[in-house]
């Protein structure tokens, strides 16, 4: 009987905790409505499309291919990123470059974003610093599935 009473008290305590949350948050909401600025806010929500959280400096967002001074891609088609990619979403096709210093350039460089898991291994593997994931674009969405094959023209932007 005494044990049951103990449970009952704990149940009441639980209700008091939620009631406290309600009242405290409500006070801050009301203060905001009547225009009093407070340090604490009533809700921790970030209203996403209008407000954005600042991305971390090392955040892995949409890929981009870096360029040389003359605008050509830095990629030399060494296929390291293709090899390391765990979801096998990168396709590279090499072609010859007239410059003997460079030797190879990618004729095709396709990232299938519908398979990419954003692990960042391609960035780590690249010896030429040709691919980076620092565009801060996090809404890589398209209306058709085929549009998720990002090729050179999209990645070099």
């Amino acid at each position: 009987m005494i044990e049951a009473l103990g449970y009952f008290i704990e149940i009441l305590k639980g209700a008091l905790i939620t009631a406290r949350h309600f009242i405290v948050n409500m006070v801050f909401h009301i203060l905001k409505v009547i225009g009093i600025k407070t340090k604490r806010k009533g809700a921790v929500t970030i209203q996403y499309p209008e407000q954005r959280k600042e991305l971390a400096r090392r955040h892995r967002s949409l890929h981009r291919l870096t360029k040389r001074e003359d605008g050509k891609p830095r990629c030399v088609s060494c296929m390291l990123c293709v090899t390391v990619c765990p979801s096998e979403c990168i396709t590279v096709e090499a072609s010859e470059d007239p410059d003997p210093e460079i030797q190879k350039v990618p004729a095709k460089f396709i990232i299938d974003l519908s398979r990419c898991c954003f692990c960042g291994f391609c960035v780590e593997a690249c010896p030429e610093d040709a691919i980076r994931m620092d565009t801060n674009i996090i809404e890589a969405s398209e209306y058709a599935r085929g549009d998720l094959y990002y090729d050179l023209s999209k990645l070099l932007k």
Partner: peptide, 10 residues
Amino acid sequence: KESAVIQDRI
């Protein structure tokens, strides 16, 4: 709304 306010949401 009440559930949101209890859970620190909007």
